[in-house]
Structures are given as structure tokens and as C-alpha cells.
């Protein structure tokens, strides 16, 4: 399994015309023959593209997990689909961070719930008192 897109220097999303041009410009005769066999027929290109996606996903996974020199990753596949390690942090560490963040928020809410309840009760009582006073004033004036 080789990455024909990379070897022809085309992007995998390129349309048929671009690929045809790249294949025609290719200097390596054996590579040109293989590329013609794969890219001239739409069904074959679909099959190749699905596998290409999967293998490049695996290449990305290996790069992130530090497995791009494993004993099972050899030959053409390793040459074409090995990526430089991107500096994405470990997903597990990220998950742990987010969980701990959520837990601290929850705990803070729990801890602050009692004083906040008191304050809201007070505010509500003051509000009710003011409203009552106003109605009384409005009721007394006409009397």
C-alpha cells in the first residue's frame, strides 16, 4: 500500500482532471502505470480512497501514540503514511483534566449553596416587605 497521492504530489481531494494531468506528467513509468490502473476507473478510486483514509487515520493514531516505529509498521506503508508527531496532548489526560475541572465546579457550588440561599431569602423578604409597604401607602392615601 503506497500513498499514490503523495507520490504524484496531488491532494487526495483533487478532481479527475488534476489527477489525470499529474499522472501524465509523472516521470516514473511503473508508477504511472499503477496510477492509471487505479485512478482511471471511478470504482477503483473509491475502493482505494476508503483504504487510504483508514490507513492515514492509523498513521495519525500511531504518530500520536508514539508507535510510528513499531515492528508491525514496515515497508511502503510506514514510508508513506508515517506522520511527524503532532503535539496534541493525550486524550486521556485531557479527559481527566476536564473531569477534575467539572468536579471542582460542582464542589464549589455545593459549598457556596448555603450562603447563597440565605442571601436570596433575605433579598426576597426585603422585596416582599417593600411591595407590601407600597400597597399600604397607595391604599392609605385615598382613605
Amino acid at each position: 500500500m503506497r500513498d499514490l497521492y503523495q507520490r504524484l504530489a496531488v491532494s487526495p481531494e483533487a478532481d479527475d482532471q488534476e489527477i489525470k494531468r499529474a499522472v501524465a506528467n509523472c516521470q516514473h513509468s511503473a508508477l504511472r502505470q499503477d496510477a492509471e490502473a487505479v485512478f482511471t476507473i471511478a470504482e477503483r478510486r473509491d475502493v482505494y480512497d476508503t483504504l487510504h483514509d483508514t490507513v492515514s487515520d492509523i498513521g495519525r493514531l500511531r504518530a500520536r501514540l508514539g508507535l510510528s516505529h513499531g515492528p508491525h509498521w514496515q515497508g511502503d506503508v510506514a514510508n508513506d503514511f508515517s506522520l511527524p508527531p503532532d503535539h496534541a496532548i493525550s486524550r486521556h489526560d485531557e479527559l481527566v483534566d476536564r473531569v477534575s475541572h467539572a468536579v471542582s465546579l460542582y464542589n464549589r457550588w455545593r459549598r457556596l449553596r448555603a450562603p447563597w440561599l440565605l442571601i436570596t431569602m433575605l433579598v426576597a423578604g426585603v422585596g416582599i416587605g417593600l411591595a407590601l409597604g407600597l400597597t399600604l401607602c397607595l391604599g392609605l392615601l385615598p382613605m
Partner: peptide, 13 residues
């Protein structure tokens, strides 16, 4: 074909 590569990835993992 895809599982060839997936199995090898799991073995490396």
C-alpha cells in the same frame, strides 16, 4: 485490507 492494518496497529499497541 483495512483490518490487516488495524490488527497490526492493535498488536503494536
Amino acid at each position: 485490507l483495512a483490518n490487516h492494518y488495524i490488527l497490526r496497529f492493535l498488536a503494536d499497541l
